[in-house]
């Protein structure tokens, strides 16, 4: 039987790679930002699956990866905001 950490861990690997592939393939900035976010979500899913493995021994998941992923989510939204602002400014400079 497949345990949850393996199912979600492998899903994370899949999301990471498909996000990476799309980042390299997409031309528009917005699509790239989406792809990078999917890629990051895959990494986060790997971390949380690793945490879930602690359930067997400790009755609760390992909180450290959870804290790391929380940090990662905040970093991702910060990077998204900066990238979108750069993209907007770039479009405006095209119009000028």
């Amino acid at each position: 039987m497949l345990s949850a950490e393996i199912i979600y861990g492998l899903t994370g690997v899949g999301l990471f790679t498909l996000g990476l592939r799309a980042t390299l393939l997409q031309a528009s900035l917005l699509a790239r930002i989406l792809a990078i976010n999917v890629c990051g979500a895959g990494v986060f899913l790997m971390f949380v699956s690793i945490a879930y493995q602690g359930l067997a021994q400790m009755q609760v998941p390992d909180p450290v990866p959870h804290a790391l992923v929380l940090t990662g989510i905040v970093v991702a939204v910060s990077a998204t905001a900066l990238a979108l602002a750069l993209g907007r400014r770039l479009r405006e400079s095209k119009d000028e």
Binding site: E5, I6, G9, L10, V13, M46, I50, Q53, G54, L55, A56, Q57, M58, V60, P61, D62, P63, V64
Partner: peptide, 17 residues
């Protein structure tokens, strides 16, 4: 990832926390 998950019992830093 599979081999890393197999390397430990899943406790890692949870015990220390």
């Amino acid at each position: 990832l599979l081999s890393a998950l197999a390397m430990g019992d899943g406790v890692r830093l949870a015990q220390a926390v």
